[in-house]
Write a protein that binds this DNA or RNA. Structure first.
Lengths: 169, 169
DNA sequence: ATCTCAGTCGTTATAATATAACTAAAGGCG
DNA sequence: CGCCTTTAGTTATATTATAACGACTGAGAT
C-alpha cells in the first residue's frame, strides 16, 4: 500500500468488533489468505453496523481512513470477504452483514453455509439462522424434480420479536 | 396514450403467450385493475423469454413497439405486474419471470404466494415451485425465535435435470 | 355536458449499485 | 536480488432503479 494512504488514525472499533476481527484474522491464517488492512477495515465497518451495510455506505466510512478509497476498493474487499465466508450479501437489500457462524459462534469455524436470514421490516435488523428443517426441505424439494441444489438465498421479511412488542404497546 | 406512439405492429407473441395474456387480462378484470397495452406488452415479453428478463432487456424489446419507451415505462409496468402477482422478481438476477401459479396452473387464481425458485446455473432457466414443506419449515423456524414472517425470497441455485444429463454425456 | 379526480403515461434528469481495464506497488520465495 | 502472484490505485463506464413534473384519459358526480 502507498505510504501516502495513511491509516494511522486509531480505528474506533468496539471491543466486540475487535474481538471478531481477531477471530477473522486467525481464520484467514488457517486458510492462507490475507486479511489486509483494507479488508479488515471493511469487515470492521460491516460488523459495527447494526443493519446491513451498503457498499457505498461502507465506502463513505472507509474514506475516513483511506482518502483514496473508490468503489473498486470496497467491492474487492467485499468479494474477498464473501469468498472467505466472513460476510453475507443480503440480496433484497444489496447490502452486507457479518457471518454469524464464522465469527460469533463457538462451534469453531467449520459450520455449514446454509444460512437463512430474517429481515425485520420494522427496524431493519437482520438475523442469521441455520435451520436444518429448512435446509432439508430445500434439498428434498429440489430432488423431487431432479434439481441438484448448490447454494441458496433464503431471505424472510417480517417483524422481529422486539418490534412486535413495541407495536403492541 | 399519445396517438403518435403507435403500437400498430402485430405483436409477435406465441400462441402460448397469447393464451397466458388472455388469462392475465381476465384475472385483472376480476380485480378491477387495468392491463393496459404497455403492461400487456411487458408481460408478454417476459413470458416469451426462456430466462428471467432484465428491465433493460425488456426495454430494448419494448422499443420495437413503443419508440418512446424509457426506463420508467418499464419499471411502472413491472411494479404493476408485481403488485398483481403476475410476475416475480428474481433477486439474485435483478430480473423478472412470469408467475407460474397465476398464469399456468389449473387451480384457478387463488393460489398462495409462497413460491420458491430453482435457478439453473447451466442454462439460466428458472422454475417456480410451491413446496409446502419449505413454507412450513420457514414458518416454524421463524416462530422459534419470535419472528413474524410476512414474505420470503427463496432462490436455490444449482443444476437442473436436463443440464445434468447434458453434462454426463 | 363538462367537471373533477384518480390513475396512467411521457419525458428529462439523476441516483444507486457494480464492474472493466490498466498501472503500479507489495509481499512471498527461489 | 529477481521473479511472480496478489493486492491496490485510478479512471472511466456499465447496469439497475427512481424522482419529479406535466399532460392525457376515462369514469363517475354534479
Amino acid at each position: 500500500m502507498l505510504s501516502s494512504t495513511a491509516t494511522t488514525e486509531l480505528d474506533p472499533f468496539s471491543p466486540r468488533t475487535l474481538a471478531l476481527l481477531d477471530r477473522a484474522a486467525a481464520f484467514c491464517t488457517t486458510r492462507a489468505s490475507r486479511l489486509t488492512e483494507t479488508r479488515r477495515l471493511v469487515l470492521g465497518l460491516i460488523l459495527e453496523s447494526r443493519k446491513p451495510a451498503g457498499a457505498y455506505d461502507i465506502l463513505d466510512h472507509l474514506r475516513q481512513y483511506q482518502r483514496n478509497a473508490a468503489p473498486p476498493t470496497v467491492y474487492r474487499a467485499l468479494d474477498f470477504l464473501l469468498a472467505q465466508g466472513l460476510i453475507h450479501r443480503i440480496e433484497r437489500m444489496s447490502a452486507f452483514i457479518g457471518c454469524a457462524h464464522r465469527l460469533d459462534c463457538h462451534h469453531g469455524n467449520g459450520c455449514g453455509h446454509r444460512a437463512q436470514f430474517l429481515i425485520c421490516s420494522g427496524c431493519g435488523a437482520v438475523s442469521e439462522v441455520e435451520d436444518s428443517e429448512i435446509s432439508h426441505a430445500i434439498t428434498s424439494a429440489s430432488r423431487k424434480i431432479g434439481f441438484k441444489p448448490q447454494q441458496s438465498t433464503i431471505e424472510i421479511e417480517g417483524i422481529c420479536a422486539s418490534c412486535q412488542q413495541a407495536d403492541s404497546t
